[in-house]
Write a protein that binds this DNA or RNA. Sequence first.
RNA 1: GCGCCUGUAGCUCAGGGGACAGAGCAGCGGACUUCUAAUCCGUCGGUCGGGGGUUCGAUUCCCUCCAGGCGCGCCA
Length: 561
Amino acid sequence: MAEALRRAAAAGELGGLAPEELPPVALEVPRERAHGDWSTNAAFLAGRAARRDPRQVAEALLRFLAAEGCYLQRVEVAGPGFINFYLDPAWLREVVRDVERSGLSYGRTEVGRGQRVQVEFVSANPTGPLHIGHGRGAAVGSALASALEWAGYEVSREFYINDAGNQIARFGESLDVRFRQALGEKVELPADGYHGQDLAELMRELAEREADRYLRLPPAERQEKLAAYAMAVKLEEIRRDLAAFGVAFDVWFPESRLHAEGAIQRVLELLRERGMTYEQDGALWLATTRFGDDKDRVLVRQNGIPTYFAADVAYHHNKMQRGFHQVIDVWGADHHGYIPRMKAAMAALGYDPAALDVVITQMVNLLREGKPVVMSKRAGQLVTLAEVVAEVGRDAARFLFLLRSADSHLDFDLELAKRQSDENPVYYAQYAHARISSLLRQAAEARVLERPPAQEETLLRAGLAADEGLDRLTHPTEVELCRLLADFPEEVVLAAQRREPHRLTRYVLDVAAAFHSFYTECRVLGSEPPLEKARLLLADATRVVLRNALQILGVRAPERM
RNA sequence: GCGCCUGUAGCUCAGGGGACAGAGCAGCGGACUUCUAAUCCGUCGGUCGGGGGUUCGAUUCCCUCCAGGCGCGCCA
C-alpha cells in the first residue's frame, strides 16, 4: 500500500507531493464486516496533504496497487474514500490447520519474550475474609497474569501481606478485647476496631483452649501473640478461598520481612542520599511533588515510626531490585489516590515511573434481584468472596467479574449469576464447548471418528482426521468462525498489553455465538465425507480456542452440561 | 474545593477520530421426527448526559457544566 502511494506520487497523481510528505499507511479492521477484512484511510490523509478529493485519490491508488495476489480476493474504494481489502477465504481456512497443529498452545506468542513482569494483586489485609471487591481484583489480576504469560512474558504473581505496622497493633487490641470478652470481662471494642464476628468466634475458641497461657502474658505481648495467631489463621483462609476461586500465587510477600531485613531504613537512606527527602515538623518527608504529586508525603512520623507509605516504597524498590522490567499493581478504586505518590516514589528512587503500572478495579455493587445487598464493614457484615463462590459457583463469578472493563462500576447480581438461563452469559460460552464435545462424541459413535479426542488433543494431532478438504468450508458462518479463530493470538496480546482481560471474555462470547450460528446453519454429521471432516475440524478448532481462552480467564470448559 | 472512574437502546454494558453507533437481556414474531432449543433467525428500540471548541469528519480528542461512584491522614 505504501508502495502504491509512492508510485502514485511519482506519477504525479498526488499533485506533486514529495515522498516525505506521504502519510503513514495504517490498516485497520473495520467495524463492519461488509467493509472488508482490512481497511485504510490513506486516501483521506493523502488527499488532505495533496488537496485532492479523497475518493479520486483512492481510485488512483487502486490503479497503482500491485495485485500481488497474496490471498487478496478484491480491493475496492468505498464511501467517501476508504480502500477496503477483502481477503481470500482460502487464507482464513488456513487457521483451522494452524489451530489443529498448535492445539493447547494456539494463541501463545512470544511478543513479550525476555520481559519479566510482576503482577501484584488482591493483597488483602490478613485480618478478615476476602470480600466481593477482592474477588474482582483476584479475577482481573489472575486473568491478566495469564494473558501476559500467553503473550510470552515471564510472569510472577504476587500477594503482598500487610502483616506489620500500626493497623496490626490495632488488630491485636481488638483481638485482646474479644479474647477477654470471651472470658467474661466487660470490655468494649474501640469504634474503629475490628468488628468482624469471625474474629470474636476465633478468640472464643482460643479462650476455651488456651486461656491461661495467653492471660499470663503482659498485655502488649499478648496482643502481639493474638495478632500473629489470628493473621496466620486468616491468611490460610484467604489462601484457601483464592484457591477455590482458581487463583494461585507464586510469591506471598510479607511486609514484616521488609522491617526485619532493615529494607525500610535502607530505602530511606537511599532517598536521603538522592536528596529526595527533608525534615519538617519533626517528620521525614519525601518530596513527591517534584514528580507530579499534589503534596509531599511523610515517610517517618514525628514519633519515629515509618508510615505505611515508607514500607510500600521499600516494597516497590525491592520489586525493582528483583529485576522485573514491568511491575503491575492491581488495586481497588479506593486506592486510586495513591497512584501519583507511588509513581513519584519510583521516580525518586531513580526508576522510570512507567515501569509501574497500576490497574484500578472499580467498585462492585452486590445485588440480589436488582436490589442492593446491604454491607456494613463496621458491623462486620459483608458478603464474603467465599459465600459468593459457594452460592453462584466459581465459573459464573469469574466470568461476570471479567465481563466488564475494570474501569466500569460493576453490578453483580447474585440471583442472575446463579440463574442458568439466557440472562447468564457464562453458560452460553460453556455450552458451546460442551456442544462441540458432544458433537465429537457423536462423531465417534457414528464411526466418523475412531474415537473422540481427549480434551488436550486435537483431531489433527491425534491423527483422528487429516487436514484435507478445508476448502470445502465456504458457508458464511464457516468463514466468519474461521475469521474469529484467527483473531485469537492478537486478542491475547491486546488483553495483556492494554491490561484489559475483559477483552477475552467478550471474545469468548463472540466465538461461542459464531459457533452456535454455524452449528444451526451447517449440518456436520451426515454431510458428504470431505465436508463432514472439514466441519469436524472447524468445530474441533473452535473447541480448542474456547478451551484456551477460558483457561486464561480461569473458567472451566465443560465437556458436558 | 481538588483528583480519579463512570454517564451509549427499557435494563446491564461493549466500542471508539471516520462509512448507516453494537451485543446480551427484556418486548414482539418465527424455527426442534436428524449432531445438546442452556440454541438459532427475524423484529422493535438510541439527538452516545447538556453546551462549546479542534477537525474535511467527533459518540470518540480538548474545555466547561450537570449527575452518580470513589478518594483527598504523620490510617492502612
